[in-house]
Structure formats: C-alpha cells, structure tokens
Design a protein around this nucleic acid. Structure first.
Length: 798
RNA sequence: GCUUGUGUGGCGGAAUUGGUAGACGCGCUGGACUCAAAAUCCAGUGAUUCUUGAAUCGUGUGGGUUCGAUUCCCACCACAAGCACCA
C-alpha cells in the first residue's frame, strides 16, 4: 500500500532543503519560460479548490518545461494590501499587518503541502515596503506625466465600506466586496487617466493569446464608438452645447434635445416658469442610487427647460429637455433626440408628445423606431441616398464646413478611481503646500512607510483613517509646512506590476534590472480566475504599456497567453461557499485523507481546465485508486532490461499525446492516455526499464511526490525534476495494419483490416470478399467506392 | 435587449482538416481471490426490439449541404457569464 503521508512529507522537505526549484535568473544559456499564477490575497480562509486547480496547472507546465531544458521562472507572492485583507482583519478584530503576516504563513504552508514547485527566493508581498517602494515610484511617474490626476468628479461612494470604489468594483449598484449600496457623490479624487490608453489597449488585444470571451469583455468595457460631435446653439442666449452621436445622418429627424440633469447649462437656460420644476427633478435624480436608476429604467421621466436649441443644419428650433436617461459621464452629457430612429428617443417622445419625423424609409413608425437602413427622406442634402455610410460622410463634411460639428470618438471606459479612504494600502506619496497644490516626494524619500495606527477603522464621512494621525498628516517637508495625502492606493495598485518584480525581487535601485526584464518578459503563461477580466487584467496592461513607453518594461503586453481556470462547484452543481457549506470542500481535508498527489490528479482529471465542473467524492477515490495501481505496478511487476514489443507503439503514442496535451493544457485527456498505458502494462505483466522510467517522467508533473519516490526506487540519486523529458519516435507509432469501418449507403456495416501500403483496388477486393459485407452487395450494383486511407471505406449501392 | 460561451449515456467527460459517437474515469452487473467482507485483479455495461445473432433509434429542437455531420450552413429552444437608458 502506498504510504502517501510519509512519502509526501519526505519529498516536501527534500525540495525545501535542497532548494530544488531555485531559478538563476541570470542564466541565459537556456531558453526561458515564465509561468505565473494570479497571486492570492491572504484572507484567513484557507486556499480553496479553485486555487488548487490553477496552481496545479501552472505547476505541471513549470515541471514539464524544466525537464525539457527550459530555465523556468515560477514564483509566488501575496496580494496583501487592499480591501479584502482589511475587511477580514476588521471582521476578526485583528490588526491587518499582524493578521496578514499570519495568513501568509498559513497559505505558504498549504502551498508546500500541495507540492508546488515555486522558487521561494522570489517571494514578494505587496504590503512589504521594499515592494511598495516601487508601486509608489510608478505612481509618482504617472503623476509627473499627468496620468495620475486630482479630479473633482462624481465617484462611486460606498458608505458601509467608507471609501470610493473603481467602476469594476461596483456591480449592479452594489459593492463587489460585501454587496453594500453605492451612490454617486462629488469628491476630489486621485484618478488614473486610463481612457488615454483606450485605443492602445484595444489594439493590443489583437496580439495576445487570450480567451476570446475575456478579450470581448475588455472590448465592451472600453466601449469605443465612432460618431460626431454636433454643436447646438441655444435660442436667444449666447450659449451652446455639443452632443455626441453615432448617427449624424439622422440630424434632419431631430425634434428635441436632452441634457443630463447635472449638465452645467441647465441652470443657465431654464426659463423662470420652469426653474422650480427643474430644480425639484435634479434633486430627485441626485438622491437616486445607481441601483435605483437602473431599476427604474422602464418608464422615462424628464422636464422641459423652457429653452430652445437651433438645429445647426435645418436652423429649426427644438425643445431642450432634461432627463436622467442621459448620463452626465458619457459623451458630452447631452444628446439630440431622433425619435423616429432611436428606440429610447422614441419612448421619450411618445410619453411627452414630441414630434416624430422619419428621415429614413422603412419600418413602422407607428409602432417603434426604425433602426435599419434605407432611402433618406425629408433630409434636404441627404435625400435619395441609400447608404448610411455615405450619408454620415456627407453630413459630417457639411458640418465641418459650417464649423458646427466634427468627427469624434467616444469611449465607455472612465477614469480609474485610484484613492481609497482606507488604512490598509500604499500611502500616496504626495504632499500639498499651503496653496493646496500637490507635489510628489523626492525619490530619496521613498518608500513612504504606512504609519502604525491603532484605530484604523474607516469613517462614514469620507475622511481617511490616516488623517487621525495628525503629526503624520500635517508635517514639514523640505522646510515647508505641508499636509499629506491621506488616502491610500487601491488593492489593484500592487498587482498592476508585480509580474515585473518577480524577475528581480531584491533590487533596491530600480523596479527591476532592465537586462533581466528584457530576457524574461513577457509572461509566457498566466493562469487565474475569470473574475479579473476587467479589473486587474486591464490595469496591468495599462501600467505595463505606460512603463513600456517609458522604456522601463520591454514588451507592450505583459501576458502572452492567458487561461482562466473554471469554477469548481459543489457536488450539487452549485458554487461552493456559505450557502451550501455541506457541499463545500476544503482541499486540506483531501490532502489529509488522500494526499496531495491524489488531489492534484483528481482536479486535473475532472475535465477541461477552463470549464466549471462539479466535485465528486467518488472521482477522488478513482484518482486515488489510479495512484495505487501505479505504485503496485512498480512494486510487484517484473522490470526487464529488454524492450517489450507489445507496448512499443502504445508507449510512443503515449509520450506524444501526453506531451502535446500538456502543452495545450488538456490535462484530462493526457491523464486518460496515461491510464490507457497502465491498463496495457497490467495485461502484459511486465515492463521494460525504458518504458517504466519514461512513464514515471510523464506523470511526474501531476503527481510529483510519488514520481520522486518511484524514481529513487528505480535506483536514481537525484530528483526527477531535472531529468530529461522522454522523446517519442513517429516511426514506432505507425502500426502495420489498421482496422477501419465500412459504410454502405451511409450506414456502418462492418470493418476491415488494411495495411497502409494497400491500394484502393486491393482494399476494394478485400471488402468485397468479406462475408459480412457480401450480403449487402448481393443483387446490387456498386455505384461508388470510396476509400479514405486510415479512416473509412464507404460504398454506395443501388 | 446586446455580446460571448455551452448543450453528447445513470454521472464527470472523449472524439486531427467532416470519416467506426460514447475514449478514460465514476457508478452498476457478473466472475476470480477469501471462511466472509474490504481491498485487489478480470470481464461486461447508450436505448429499444426480437430467438443465438442482428435490426432500428441515438450528440438540445427543426431543416439543409454531403457517400458520410457531435463537427459545416440556416432557423429556433434552454442554460451560464459579461454588458446594459453608452446617445
């Protein structure tokens, strides 16, 4: 019986004591392979099954690549700053710094037990001053380059968490963490101008090997739309406003305009008799949370301002309304209403009895707006044109000529809100002088250490906890009285560049050595959950692009290939967690009862890595059984010095399939091939040394503990980790004969053994002589005989 | 509503460019070993119909292309994820 407990302990200690997986990053003599996991936040709850899945997958790749002669960088670290870690600390009444340290120890211990081949000399933690030194330094560069800006703007405010949040941290009007309500509030905030990188972030997607769905999510999030800006003069006053539209071709159909309730012009142009109603409406909108706004999206509301705008093309006057269906933070916060050809405008016009003028033929304007193409009518310059593209071109050049409009591009992506009114994060290295102007700290004053604070709980008012530390917040800097920025950076700050630091984690002079970066970047394989599709994965791409342009990072994209592991569901097919604790699995229990090899093997065998899959206790038993079957085979079978010819073809097939499948991260089918091989050996009752050693190498990336033990029992002194990966010979795979199917009129009727040198004529003769086939051919005429070598025989008879 | 996926036995899941559907595992059934059980090993296992042997059906539904479709095309249904008054 395989004593997994003893053996796993033995090898975990061996790897640690011998620093088996230490990487010399300066060794450029071998090709490099950089394989990375999304680092966890040390939360107090142990690693879950999803971590195990992703980490095992990268570990298999790291282990195989080492054996294939690559210099492999496979590091691990801690996403230790930020909301999740702090929330857990508050919940358990611990100080985040103590708590985080403790959790890191627990996590690290678990990773050892899992047999993951990390180089722990490269370990980093985002809350370590040696690390956040450079997070602050990058922020400072962004500030100096005017990409980190102080902005007074409506932000997502979450009172329960006591902080503002970035857009990707708000889901359906609630905070991603905790599910607390989020409202819009005007606040002066540090933001990062990620919209400036919108086009580069879009273009970059074309050159990386990422899941299509994730690329699509990023494209949607960036939300590029091409259209025009058109100026509308307000009648009777010297004011004008611009609207953004993707349909300038419908300008002859404009029957009203709408400003967002927050638009700066509203108070200036509203007429006396309307101003009261307008003010009341504005108040109502302000009180609504984002959640209410989206919930109330069925019925349109709005108020007429009393003012009129002049259509720049027709010179006709149209009413100006305000309505909250126009968002203040998209486009210009003002739209032109074309009810005939836009469904929202249509509903609005219907409700408030505004004219609907069709300008494109088609559809049924009595029922709904017509969105399609057609012949332009009622459109003066555009009448008779049939193509939308042509109409847009023509009207835009006309608008440009009369200087009342121009081509324009709009993005959905907003500024990245970068400050948190919380304690547990990187201090922002900025001081304000007596005038309130921000100034970055000198390089020599970095890192700016996060001060100790006994009471770090967030306030409900937007006041940062650090403000309570008066002697820190109000200080003298370079002989000048200053106040410090007391907000801290979001959790996504450190994770936006940590992949660069692993390459040179102890460098005290720069974020990482340039020559090393050049050799090691980009990350060859990055695995993590799909929940980071727009947060972390977009932010890292932007920071990396910025650093690339500064000559500080060597590649414009940081992650060449990205894979998301699927979710491991409970045995009931539902997400594990608090709701169904009886269906939640703690990986530690599995390691205790079956060993880490079994857990690794089982999770890799469950199904495709990227799919969601339900847990099965019986499946774990099955994996365990397979491990014992291998162990017993090596214990009891005769290992011969001569080859066994019966296994030759299958062995080479197995080497080929397993190698290719690992490369494509198809671990489930690789394992099934390994099982087929073992089943065949059991039939044969003996195995040659060559195949025995080859097989154990093939499986070693998945079950490294058992593999090391068997390798040693086979008489080897060194770890299997750097042994040469087995080769296969295509010639040995080819078998003399192959059995293929015979179809008659599309139905499978039998099979025939063919040699690969057989000609079509020979095969035809062979098939015709088969007894089982003859009965289908009697009294029939063969119309067509098809022979696809290696595949099938297909006969058409009549 | 839009976007992107997914849909195959009792279950998890396999199937190069269209070429013997259900590999491999779980479960189940039978056998060997055992006083017995467990473990282990061996064999069988998509459904239906009848007599050994075969026939028919079968990859969400309905069509189409093809000698041949899980795979390609069209329409639809269900589920999941993302976005959502984005002008």
């Amino acid at each position: 019986m395989y004593d997994f407990k003893k053996i796993e302990q033995k090898w975990a200690k061996y790897w640690q004591d011998n620093k088996t997986f230490q990487t010399d990053v300066w060794d450029f003599s071998k090709p490099k392979y950089y394989v990375l996991d999304m680092f966890p936040y040390p939360s107090g709850v142990a690693l879950h099954c999803g971590h195990v899945e992703g980490y095992t997958a990268t570990d298999i790749m790291a282990r195989m690549k080492r054996m294939q002669g690559y210099n492999v960088l496979h590091p691990m670290g801690w996403d230790a700053f930020g909301l999740p870690a702090e929330q857990y600390a508050i919940k358990t009444g611990n100080h985040p710094s103590v708590f985080t340290q403790k959790n890191i120890e627990t996590f690290k211990n678990q990773l050892f037990l899992m047999g993951l081949s990390y180089d722990w000399d490269k370990e980093i933690s985002t809350c370590d001053p040696k690390f956040y030194h450079w997070t602050q330094w990058i922020f400072k560069q962004l500030f100096l380059d005017n990409l980190a800006i102080l902005k007074d703007m409506p932000v997502n405010w979450c009172e329960e968490l006591g902080t503002v949040l970035a857009n990707d941290e708000v889901i359906n009007g609630k905070s991603e963490r905790g599910g607390f309500p989020v409202i819009r509030k005007n606040m002066k905030q540090w933001v990062i101008d990620i919209p400036k990188y919108a086009d580069k972030l879009l273009e970059g997607l074309n050159e990386i090997d990422w899941p299509l769905s994730t690329k699509e999510i990023q494209r949607n999030w960036i939300g590029k739309s091409i259209g025009a800006l058109i100026d509308f003069q307000v009648e009777g006053v010297d004011e004008k406003f611009s609207v953004f539209t993707t349909r300038p071709d419908t300008i002859y159909g404009v029957t009203y305009c709408v400003l967002s309730p927050e638009h700066e012009l509203v108070n200036k142009i509203s007429t006396k008799d309307q101003i009261e109603a307008i003010k009341k409406y504005q108040k109502e909108c302000e009180a609504k949370s984002d959640l209410e706004r989206t919930e109330l999206n069925k019925d349109k509301t709005g108020i007429f301002t009393g003012a009129y705008a002049i259509n720049p093309v027709t010179k006709k006057r149209v009413e100006i309304w305000i309505s909250d269906y126009v968002l203040s933070n998209y486009g210009t916060g003002a739209v032109m209403g074309v009810p005939a050809h836009d469904q929202r405008d249509y509903e609005f016009a219907r409700k408030f009895q505004i004219d609907i003028i069709p300008v494109i033929k088609g559809g049924n304007i009595d029922k709904e707006a017509y969105i399609g193409e057609g012949e332009y009518i009622n459109s003066d310059l555009l009448n008779g044109i049939n193509s939308k593209e042509q109409a847009i071109d023509k009207i835009v050049s006309y608008l440009e000529k009369i200087k009342l409009g121009k081509k324009s591009v709009n993005y959905r992506i907003r500024d990245w809100i970068f400050a948190r009114q919380r304690y547990w994060g990187e201090p922002i290295p900025i001081v304000y002088d007596s005038e309130g102007a921000p100034r970055a700290l000198d390089d020599k004053d970095l890192p700016l250490i996060l001060p100790e604070l006994a009471d770090y709980t967030p306030s409900k008012t937007g006041e940062s906890p650090l403000k309570k530390k008066k002697e820190w917040a109000n200080t003298v800097y370079q002989e000048e009285k200053v106040t410090r920025e007391t907000s801290t950076m979001p959790g996504s700050a450190g994770s936006s560049w940590y992949f660069l630091r692993y390459i040179d984690p102890h460098n005290e002079n720069e974020l990482a050595n340039k020559e090393l970066l050049k050799h090691w970047m980009p990350v060859d394989l990055y695995i993590g959950g799909p929940e980071h599709a727009v947060g972390h994965l977009l932010y890292s791409r932007m920071w990396n692009k910025y650093l690339y342009e500064k000559g500080l990072a060597p590649t414009s994209e940081p992650f060449k290939k990205l894979v998301h592991q699927g979710m491991i569901l409970g045995a009931n097919g539902i997400k594990m967690g608090k709701r169904y604790p009886e269906f939640s699995i703690n990986p530690n229990d599995i390691i205790r009862d079956y060993g880490a090899d079994t857990l690794r093997l089982y999770e890799m065998f469950m199904g495709p890595i990227e799919a969601d899959k339900p847990w099965s206790d019986a499946g774990v038993e099955g994996a365990h059984k397979f491990i014992n079957r291998i162990w017993n085979l090596y214990e009891t079978f005769n290992i011969t010095e001569e080859k066994n010819p019966n296994l030759e073809s299958l062995y080479h097939q197995t080497v080929k399939k397993v190698t290719n499948d690992y490369e494509k991260l198809k671990f489930n089918t690789a394992i099934s091939q390994l099982m087929v091989f073992i089943n065949a050996v059991y039939k044969d009752k003996e195995i040659s040394r060559e195949y025995a050693e080859g097989f154990i190498k093939l499986i070693s990336p998945i079950t490294p503990f058992m593999a090391e033990e068997i390798w040693q029992k086979l008489g080897h002194k060194d770890s299997i980790s750097y042994e040469k990966w087995p080769n296969f010979d295509e010639k040995c795979i080819q078998e003399e004969t192959k059995t293929i199917g015979i179809q008659i009129n599309g139905k499978l009727r039998g099979e025939v053994e063919v040699r690969k040198e057989d000609t079509e004529k020979e095969v035809e003769e062979k098939v015709k002589n088969l007894e089982t086939i003859q009965k289908y051919l009697q009294e029939k005429e063969i119309q067509k005989f098809i022979y696809i070598p290696n595949r099938i025989v297909s006969i058409i008879v009549k």
